[in-house]
Nucleic acid binder design. Structure first.
Length: 302
DNA sequence: TAGATACCTTATAG
DNA sequence: ACTATAAGGTATC
């Protein structure tokens, strides 16, 4: 086992590990007590490990916890570079916050979850996760990804336990809609199977969007089955490094209605442009994620 | 092109 | 206990 420590003081703006991995950006981390997402009010992040399995290259288990001012990690590999990418440890939170509007709701969201970072998930896992997210609660999206890993993911041994990597595109391409429905995916089952097929055959790959202008990248991702503008924005923001992407989900739509009514333009593209500008442009997605987590957890109702 | 509707399943509220 | 409702929407008509 390899292990290491990352000093929180060394990170610009620090980190809140629990908020980062439980805020509905990533569904690829498991809390070691198995109770992830069960109760939003529950805190105790100083005691919990979160574990993920990196799949590119050979599968590698990575687990990390935060306590006493450090991130402690243990892994089958030297995981420092992976953690830096997965948890966006090089983002300067203070600089990013300075780009956010000086509204009460935005500033309260930043205050409440200060240290929360965006994630940078592997593209395929992010794509499938957010296809599954349609009309779903955060806790169930997470359990669906666990089910996919348990059913189709490669096994990896670590520290006396067996973990499953996220399924490969071909593993999901080769299964059936019926099998995926049995796992509880509902009408998302054919979307997942057909999208996996597109990736497995080489017809399209989510990573290809990188390098395109933001709106072209979003359009490009909607080629996948089950991917509309909202899911495309999630993949851009939480996997492909487009920090300006603002997914227009039910929460941000109600935020627009209540706090930014002038940004409602009647269609996704124009409303997206308006709210993106209102939230500061370049890092608008960061602010969106703070708002989402703040409102979804009811932290504004105290 | 814009608008309405069906869609799986389950946790939660009443 | 039982029903209605909503959950980080998309595809189709």
């Amino acid at each position: 086992m390899e292990q290491g420590v990352i000093d929180v003081e060394s990170l610009a703006g620090g980190i809140d590990l629990q908020a980062t991995v439980e805020s509905g950006q990533s569904y690829l981390w498991d809390r070691d007590d198995g109770e992830m997402y069960q109760r939003d009010g529950a805190t105790g992040g100083d005691a919990w490990y979160w574990t993920t399995v990196r799949r590119d290259g050979s599968p590698a288990v990575i687990r990390v916890r935060q306590r006493d001012g450090v991130l402690e990690w243990e892994s089958t590999i030297d995981a420092k570079a992976d953690l830096k990418r997965l948890l966006r440890l090089e983002d300067n939170l203070s600089a990013i916050r300075k780009t956010a509007p000086d509204d009460d709701v935005v500033q309260s969201a930043y205050d409440t979850f200060w240290g929360m970072r965006l994630v940078q998930d592997p593209p395929f896992g992010s794509l499938i996760s957010f296809i599954c997210s349609a009309q779903m609660r955060v806790a169930r999206i997470h359990s669906m990804q666990q089910a996919l890993r348990d059913a189709f993911g490669e096994e990896v041994e670590f520290d006396g336990r067996t973990y499953n990597a996220y399924p490969t595109p071909s593993a999901l391409a080769e299964t059936t809609e019926a099998r995926l429905r049995d796992l509880g995916l509902g009408y998302r089952a054919p979307y997942v199977q057909r999208t996996a097929e597109m990736v497995a055959t080489g017809e399209a790959n989510p990573g290809e969007a990188v390098g395109l202008d933001y709106e072209d990248a979003r359009e490009s991702l909607t080629r996948f089955v089950g991917v509309g503008d909202k899911v495309a924005d999630c993949v851009l923001l939480f996997s492909l490094d487009y920090l300006e992407a603002v997914p227009l989900d039910t929460w941000i739509r109600s935020t627009i209605e209540e706090y930014y009514p002038e940004c409602e333009r009647g269609n996704y593209t124009d409303t997206s442009r308006a709210i993106r500008t209102a939230l500061g442009g370049e890092f608008a997605g960061y602010t969106q994620t703070y708002l989402f987590h703040y409102l979804r957890t009811g932290s504004n109702e105290d």
